[in-house]
Design a binder for these strands. Structure first.
Length: 416
RNA sequence: GGACGAGUGGGUGAGCGGUUGAAACCACAUCCCUGCUAAGGAUGCGUAUGGGUAACUGUACCGAGAGUUCGAAUCUCUCCUCGUCCA
């Protein structure tokens, strides 16, 4: 959530940054106006309430001393009517402000380059060189079907489009990848957690998926429960509405979950294969930290994801997202894109974000620093999307005869 | 699904409708003493928000929401969660 106090104090500075993110200046002006209105409404209410409280105390004294309370009661009753009016106004203003503020994205960091979409992202570095193929490499869906690893049609039969089924070595590889990634992350100091795949509205508001992006979430019929679009939601919200002690930080966690997305805005994109599915496996990293630690932990998380790909010998590149591609909650984001020879391009396989205190303010996650309570910084990142890693293995490890080699580091996980 | 019980500050746990924002204990912080694998003492210590340079102070919050009342942690209703018993 946007820092409304800061918006009041430094409207020009903050609005300039948010405009880069595509937020309408008029909206911000309205927001500022509303928060001033709310303040006035609050003062009105509090003044009357203070009067009411003191008169009530007097009332007690009068009674104890046996004085006549007739006149006092008349005053108190009249004041009470005023209070109800003023309170209604205050509530209304508060609600208006809240719903507006919840829809404002995070302020992008100054380091985020301007840009429209993924084409304007800035490459930071490449890791490993894609190998040369002496033949035309196949795309993963072809390889997957040839090897009997993935069955796209049966996925559709069971559910609907954008669902698939893994068989045999395909399924085993997924399991191996999940275990490999979790172990890798644990070795880097991220504690493994296992969390619910269904969460309530509060959790999704905490991390920023709601109220704005309800269309992309699967919701349980008749219940305020949603399938998680990423483990970031349950894991970050683990500490929602808590005050942590300083020595608990940083809290670094990793979790494997299935993720569920309606992909509402992605009609026609990646319809073939398992790049964009409604349900997919992902191993996630989440960290809560002190503000001064978050930059360093962010870098740790990027390395962690990149090093997994390196261990799998998959060429990839690291990309700084531009304002247009930056998510709602992120202050800045680095994507890792893996090389897919079949598609002859780099494709996103991980997205690592520092939301600074944006989510912490929404989810009320603080820590105690001496006397003061301070918002933690929250970070999240994939390490990695399992399906896409499998895709990358298929395409990079393919042989001319259509067979696929197994990455060395995964062999122990496959009993090889 | 039915019956009963419970939900209080970081934790445990008191709390008659009126100086109770809430005893006590633990934890925590600062200081003192002591001097050593530890102990003792003093003080402070809920959250959020408004005003004030500050001391300080207003308001709200005792699971959530509504109600009764001049006044509610304390009474009533609804909901949620947890526990115990029954089907």
């Amino acid at each position: 959530m946007i820092d409304l106090k800061l918006l009041q104090k430094d409207f020009d500075g903050m609005s300039a940054k948010l405009i880069r993110k595509g937020v309408d200046l008029a909206l911000l002006e309205k927001l500022k106006e509303k928060s001033e209105e709310l303040k006035v409404a609050k003062i009105n209410f509090e003044t009357l309430q203070a009067l009411q409280n003191s008169m009530s105390k007097e009332f007690g004294i009068y009674k104890r001393e046996g004085k006549d309370i007739g006149e006092l009661k008349a005053k108190v009753d009249a004041n009470k009517i005023e209070i109800t009016k003023v309170l209604d106004i205050q509530r209304e203003k508060n609600q208006e402000l809240e719903s507006m503020a919840m829809a404002i994205p995070n302020v992008p960091d100054d380091s985020v380059p301007d840009g429209e979409d993924e084409n304007d992202n800035v490459e930071l570095k490449k890791v490993l060189t894609p190998k040369e193929f002496s033949y035309t490499p196949k795309e993963h869906w072809e390889l997957a079907e040839e090897n009997g690893w993935i069955d796209f049609e049966r996925g559709v039969k069971l559910a609907t489009s954008r669902f698939s089924v893994s068989f045999g070595m395909g399924a085993k590889l997924e399991r191996a990848l999940i275990n490999f990634m979790l172990n890798f992350n644990s070795d880097r100091g991220f504690e493994e957690v296992s969390v619910p795949a269904l969460v309530n509205r509060t959790a999704l508001e905490g991390t920023g998926q709601l109220p704005k992006f309800e269309d992309d979430l699967y919701k349980m019929d008749g219940q305020e429960l949603f399938l998680i679009p990423t483990a970031e939601v349950p894991v970050t919200n683990l500490y929602q509405d808590e005050i942590l002690s300083a020595n608990e930080l940083p809290k670094k966690m990793t979790a494997y979950t299935s993720c569920f997305r309606k992909e509402a805005g992605a009609a026609g994109r990646d319809t073939r294969g398992m790049i964009r599915q409604h349900q997919f496996h992902k191993v996630e990293l989440v960290a809560l930290s002190k503000p001064e630690q978050s930059e360093e932990i962010f870098n740790e998380m990027v390395s962690c994801a990149s090093d997994i790909l390196t261990a799998l010998e998959l060429p990839h590149r690291i990309v700084n997202l531009c304002t247009g591609d930056l998510g709602f909650s992120a202050a800045y984001t680095t994507d890792i894109e893996v090389w897919l020879p079949g598609q002859n391009q780099y494709r996103e396989i991980s997205s690592i974000s520092n939301t600074r205190e944006f989510q912490a303010r929404r989810a009320k996650i603080r820590y105690k620093d001496g006397k003061k309570n301070i918002m933690v910084h929250t970070l999240n990142g994939s390490s990695l999307a399992v399906g896409r890693t499998l895709v990358a293995i298929m395409e990079n490890y393919q042989n001319e005869d259509g067979t696929i080699d197994i990455p060395e580091v995964l062999k122990p996980y496959l009993g090889m």
